[in-house]
Computed example of a mutant assay.
Amino acid sequence: PVPEVLDRTPADSLIWADILDLGPMPSFTRGRAVLLGDAAHAVTPDLGQGAGLAMEDAAVLAALFGGLPADRAIREYDKRRLDRAHRVAVESRLYAKIAQWQNPLVVPLRNLLVKSIPEYFMDRQLEAVLDIDFEPVRAAA
């Protein structure tokens, strides 16, 4: 009943906040400055991975600083986090675009296709998003 609730809610009681994401950055580091979480890779909420990526960043960074000299730890952090963060950001942005389609001819088709996706395929896609290899963290510690 979301549309009905919104229709009955006074306009001055609604809070609208745009969702913004960052385009892929070529690096999350510059000198001894290191970005992590949304500062490095703000993503749309469509995959629900923003906070998870930030925690991954922190775990990897802490492990690297615990086992390597600072300059090397910073370089390694960049190498280990860029690809995964970029992949999640691109997938999240794609899901956001598809979810926001408004063409009345396309929306029913999209909805039908999404409902028709086999569960095993959806599980494989989810596993790809959630699959994080923490071996680099263990190896650096």
Rank of each mutant, 00 (worst) to 15 (best):
L53Y: 01
P1H: 03
P24F: 00
L22D: 03
W101N: 15
V114C: 06
D71Y: 07
L126P: 08
E4R: 14
I19R: 15
P69E: 00
E4M: 06
L68Q: 13
A89C: 04
M55W: 05
R110K: 14
G67Y: 02
G52F: 01
E91R: 15
D123V: 15
D71E: 14
R72S: 12
R110V: 11
A63M: 05
E76K: 15
V43Q: 02
P69T: 04
L20C: 12
A39G: 14
A42P: 15
L64I: 14
R8N: 14
A33R: 06
A85S: 13
V114L: 12
R93N: 02
L35R: 10
P118L: 01
T44W: 01
V90N: 12
V106H: 07
Q125S: 11
A42E: 06
R84P: 13
D133Y: 00
A58R: 11
P45L: 03
R110Q: 12
N103Y: 01
H41F: 07
G48E: 02
S27R: 06
L105I: 13
A11Y: 06
D18M: 08
A54C: 10
A51K: 01
S13L: 07
S116K: 12
L94M: 07
L112D: 02
A40P: 03
F28A: 04
R87F: 03
A58F: 09
F121N: 11
L94P: 12
R93M: 01
I19P: 11
W16A: 08
L126G: 15
D71I: 06
G31T: 08
I117H: 07
R93W: 00
V60N: 05
M55H: 05
L112V: 10
A40D: 02
